[in-house]
Write a protein that binds this DNA or RNA. Structure first.
Lengths: 338, 338
DNA sequence: TTGTAAGCGTTATCAT
DNA sequence: ATGATAACGCTTACAA
């Protein structure tokens, strides 16, 4: 089946290409009968308007980009799910960009996207909150951006976040109330807005219960599974924590594996709770207590916010800063035995 | 920062747009100094070539589509990971299309993609192997397609699959060797190539051990978590299986939840094994035995195969039909107690 | 209601 | 080595 363009189609129909074009757009005045005839023949000949030509002409692509640090992460894939669902509803498509936690890739992506490749962007930041000045140079009229999860605090862009401070505080408090005194905080990057906020909740909860904050209990982890196993094992050995708050799902998994290897009982010896949106956390051994982030909904919300801007609507102040609620789901991994 | 096009950039530089254009493409002859100067100013002015204009002109987009039935599925998100990684290596981007298991959406996607929106497609089929005649009408010279996972047997397209028959046979055999006599096969759609192949392995393993095949033990499930819970619970109650082979990860999760609710012990009363690529299957309770599909690698392979075609290389017969090996990973959930 | 023609921002061909 | 120009396929004033 040869590819056919609008001119050939017009020729077959004995019409001008403008008339044919009109048949495919909604409004323009066109004789209903002509339209019907065009659509029919178009279907027979399997004509498809060329997306790039339309985009070039119309200066929009009905496509949005999702820029995320990584894909091998349950949280981000759920974000994509939510965003895709919302985008599809409104006839948009999703283009994925993975920065591998590299701010220079983030910058390059955004720069190149500014050329009109997509109509808008939703993004979870890769960099630390200091080095994103590039964002100030881009024109948000041309390329609306919505930040989620890992945001840049000082950039006045619409944002969708979760109530990380409260959740973190509540999770820490829960550990304390279940008898923990030496709670370790596992974090990947303290400088990221999100690592910071969660740490603040942790620190403030300790303070409330007059538990001294020990720097040694704040454990810097990496993105490598192997490294983390070593780091966590050493931390457990040396610091002897009785509780762990994992700021990222994957650090809890590593903790489980390490404990299994070391023969440490969860929750008897060590209680564990983690930020996570894994559906089957309850099927783990022991069932993992989590701060459950509504990842899919965050993706939906971020996309909806972007799409609203693309529709030309302006956002209210509330809509420019949306906070989603996480649930504290307590399971075996963090409970004191009766 | 205003968007700037090649003409404006040329004007600033006192050059023609052709010269400027040449600076951005590799080969064309251009004075190295001029090129340098152009690139420098372009950077200052933050010029980005318009993707759509280039695509329209060049008739290619450096973008590939991934068409999958669903996103809320660990397997497919791992596929995306692999494909994204491979694509990125070669400067390609990923556009995602989710069919929600609806063959008519699949058809519409492929049709619309044929207009040149992407340079190629990798796809896991949504439909049953009968109703895909639409695929015969598309021109694979214009739109190369690589199938993976759920394929259409009779269409002569490059395919990447796993050794499902062998895996399924081996998994069933393993259950039998661990004492199971009434093994249930949980499947979502028997008509799909993949459900069929896996069922064949199951049946043949039974045959080998002279265990009668009971139709009642082949359990048709749906895509809804609620429905499946009911279906599985009823099946367990009525059929009293002592082993379960779940052809899809999520059916194993449902089984776990159902067993927990019914107070059935895994593996004592019921042994479970599932097709799955979940990394933390070993952290479940009990640790889940799996046929581990190399999902990320399948994604890589499918993308690599497509990209090879896009590079203009022709594929050998072996390359047109790639079979990846799954591992049988035996854990507690399927082991006979000593 | 339909047709004509200009233009979207590139790249490639052909001159210079 | 550089410049002028046509072409990629479509949409949209504007004219008929």
């Amino acid at each position: 089946m040869a590819k056919i363009d609008i001119i050939q189609l017009a020729r077959v129909l004995n019409l001008s290409k403008s008339t044919v074009s009109r048949a495919f757009r909604d409004s323009s005045d066109i004789n209903p009968k002509t339209k019907e005839r065009i659509l029919k023949v178009a279907k027979e000949l399997n004509y498809q308007p060329n997306h790039y030509a339309s985009n070039l002409r119309e200066q929009k692509s009905k496509t949005i980009a999702i820029v995320i640090p990584e894909l091998a992460n349950n949280y981000f894939t759920q974000i994509i799910q939510g965003a895709e669902k919302e985008a599809k509803k409104q006839g948009y498509h999703i283009l994925i960009f993975v920065t591998d936690d590299d701010i220079s890739k983030e910058r390059d992506f955004i720069r190149s996207l500014a050329s009109g490749r997509v109509d808008g962007v939703i993004m979870s930041a890769s960099g630390e909150s200091t080095d994103h000045s590039y964002l100030e140079r881009i024109n948000y009229e041309h390329l609306p951006i919505v930040l989620f999860d890992r945001i840049y605090d000082d950039i006045h862009l619409p944002k969708v976040v979760t109530d990380d401070y409260q959740s973190s505080f509540a999770a820490t408090e829960h550990l304390i109330q279940n008898g923990c005194q030496r709670i370790a905080y596992l974090v990947i990057n303290k400088e990221l807005s999100i690592g910071k906020t969660r740490m603040q909740g942790y620190e403030d909860a300790l303070k409330k219960y007059k538990i001294p904050l020990r720097k040694r209990l704040i454990i810097d982890c990496s993105n490598s599974y192997e490294e983390n196993s070593g780091i966590i094992e050493e931390a457990i050995r040396k610091q002897q924590p009785d509780g762990i708050l994992a700021s990222v799902e994957r650090l809890a998994f590593s903790t489980y594996y390490v404990c299994r290897r070391m023969g440490i009982q969860i929750p008897e010896t060590l209680k564990v709770i983690a930020f996570s949106s894994l559906e089957i956390a309850g099927l783990m051994h022991p069932p993992l207590s989590v701060v459950r982030q509504p990842a899919v909904q965050i993706g939906e919300k971020a996309a909806a916010t972007l799409l609203k801007q693309l529709a030309g609507d302006s956002l209210s102040e509330e809509e420019r800063f949306i906070t989603m609620q996480s649930d504290l789901v307590i399971r075996e991994s963090s409970k004191a035995k009766a």
